[in-house]
């Protein structure tokens, strides 16, 4: 099985759209003060409102290989950031930028992503 890197980059970057996330439910469990980049293989993706859902197969040294579920911005907001249908699909490898869980568990809130072709939705490179 191919290894996938989990790159963690802490920044003091708060997405301007985080307030929209908060509008739908409490976002207290997410640390919007940090940016974490995660690369993994798409197991399931659902671009929906009020929040997208993405399950990636991720491997890192600390916890090995496992499926991690993420949520993220609404389909409408992702579309306005550049998301197009069929940009990627199951089995593709993508990199996402997330606000990680405050409690250190797997998961987080997706604020941007990079497709296998290098297309970006949101500002993934801003944290690189």
């Amino acid at each position: 099985m191919k290894n996938y890197l989990v790159t963690i980059i802490a920044t003091i970057f708060a997405s301007s759209l985080s307030t929209i996330a908060i509008a739908h439910h409490s976002a207290a469990q997410f640390d919007f003060g940090n940016t974490v980049l995660v690369t993994g293989k798409v197991e399931e993706v659902r671009f929906a409102n009020p929040h997208m859902r993405l399950i990636l197969e991720v491997t890192d040294d600390a916890r090995g290989t496992r499926d991690i579920e993420f949520e993220g911005h609404s389909r409408n907001n992702m579309r306005r950031q550049g998301l197009m249908p069929d940009m990627f699909t199951v089995e593709d490898t993508v990199t996402i930028r997330i606000a990680p869980m405050r409690n250190g568990n797997d998961g987080g809130y997706v604020t941007a992503l990079r497709t296998p072709d290098g297309e970006e939705v949101g500002r993934v490179t801003a944290a690189d």
Binding site: A23, H24, H25, S26, A28, P50, H51
Partner: peptide, 8 residues
């Protein structure tokens, strides 16, 4: 602190 909310 939950995912419960009208919008959700």
């Amino acid at each position: 602190g939950t995912n419960h909310g009208a919008g959700n």
